[in-house]
Amino acid sequence: MDNGASSYRRFLEGDESGFVEIVREYRDGLILYIDSFVGSISAAEDIAEDVFVKLGIKKPRFSERSSFKTWLYAIGRRLALDWLRKQKRRGEIVPIDSCAELADKQQLEADHIRDERNRAVRSAMKRLRPEYEQVLWLIYFEEFSCKEAAEVMKKSVHSVEMLVSRARQALKEQLSKEGHDHENI
């Protein structure tokens, strides 16, 4: 599969198996990214589904893979923020993951992040400020460029570069605190 581009093309031509392939390729990373906003894996799963629904309804056109993935994550971020605002407006408390949901989350992370060192990095990232966690997730785990991350996060490229720099420093300190090697971060 070519990063979803041919699957998406097939979906636009009416082949729904292309849509299933897109979900298979992008869902888990998207859920973990959205979870960094909403702090609930079940809510993140619902929101990720909403992102795919929007993709199917709007059917945006893309010429390259990066803008396709950027679009998905930008919509994911927006829907996550909308969800938080709605919770706040209604005075509802963000639901805490149950034991089963926490197990789901751990499994999802284990499936998505195969490398043990990356799992340690991910674990340390979760202890950082949410904004640091979000930008590091995009750059290190989803392999976005700063320009793409800026599009997703609705920031200037310069702001994202600064944010990455600060987030990287915070991550090194966190890894060091946890006794992990932080070379090449």
């Binding site: 589904e49 629904v53 999802l108």
Partner: peptide, 20 residues
């Protein structure tokens, strides 16, 4: 958590409903 196929099926149902 739903399987990929369940997520896709649920999303497609909602897309079809929206189109209708």
């Amino acid at each position: 958590m739903k399987t990929y196929e369940e997520t896709a099926a649920s999303a497609l149902t909602r897309i079809h409903e929206h189109q209708r």
